[in-house]
Write a protein that binds this DNA or RNA. Structure first.
Lengths: 157, 157
DNA sequence: CGGAATAACTTGATGCATCAAGTTCTTCTC
DNA sequence: GAGAAGAACTTGATGCATCAAGTTATTCCG
């Protein structure tokens, strides 16, 4: 807690940051709205199902899903419980491995992701991937990775 | 609802998008956590106060605040009610102008923003502005503006 | 080999966001 | 100038996110 005058943002920095902040506020809602109206899914729920669907055995441990979706284990646990109640996946304790738990995509879950994916990808294309230059998308990736590393340092080694 | 095979994302596109998605999930939480622990404010609450504090008369109409913070009027209304209950701002109906309402920052609100700003700016610098190249920040601005324009077309004219 | 620390979740309470519906003025149209 | 349409919010219900605390194996250590 110093009393020195902080380094405020320059005009360019401020403009960049405000634009980014607007993106943070609006984009999640836009993605949610589309998935919600077409498939009754949250963007985050979709991510969970999608991550599972990419595995050969449609199975992944809770912690690994959390890592893959950048979420807390607590958030994931609540969501998985809801998805399980809907029959889209089921949980299985891994015997002899502490409290480790796998989530397994059910057939109904698979059908759901397959139904949701085209519309979702089309939306992501329309809003972002097809809207910006390839260079800018690469920049966005660099930026995101840098910022994420700063948020929790040493998460990827 | 076409049955054609959709255009899936290429590896580069997918990597860019996943990184961006991770950013969308983690950055808001990181900003909230800092403001919450230091000043008991949400990032969004801070934005509302900050926008008001930049006006000479510390006054702005609800709709204008909503536009400046990229939020819905509904969300803003709830937040402003909470901030008013804490004495950080007050609302004033503008007479003879329909349901138009101004929000006015109180002295307590001013003190709060002034107290919160340095820590918040430092955090934004550390996580984003100072972490990425100036070119990349410019790219982020371009990207954000493009995406926002796609989300609700013709919001800025 | 026993007790403490750790890992991997789960749960419950609280609070914020969103959506749909309701209010209350003003303005436009005939 | 009356009634309809629209603008600018407000409100209440619902649901999701977060935080702190609780569980339940497992491993480490003396």
């Amino acid at each position: 807690m110093t009393t020195e005058e902080p380094r405020w943002l320059s005009d360019d920095e401020l403009a960049g940051w405000m634009a980014a902040a607007a993106l943070l506020i609006k984009l999640p809602g836009a993605l949610d709205a589309q998935l919600q109206s077409e498939q009754g899914l949250t963007f985050f729920e979709y991510m969970v199902l999608a991550v599972l669907s990419e595995r050969d055995d449609r199975t992944l441990q809770m912690s690994d899903i959390a890592a893959a979706t950048s979420s807390s284990l607590s958030r994931l646990s609540h969501v998985v419980k809801r998805l399980e109640a809907q029959g889209l996946l089921r949980r299985e304790r891994i015997p002899g491995a502490g409290r480790r738990t796998n989530a397994v995509l059910t057939d109904a879950g698979w059908v759901k992701v397959v139904a949701a994916a085209p519309g979702h990808v089309a939306r992501v294309r329309h809003l972002l991937v097809d809207a910006v230059a390839a260079d800018d998308l690469a920049a966005l990736r660099r930026i995101s990775e840098t910022v994420i590393e700063r948020i929790d340092p040493g998460r990827s080694c």
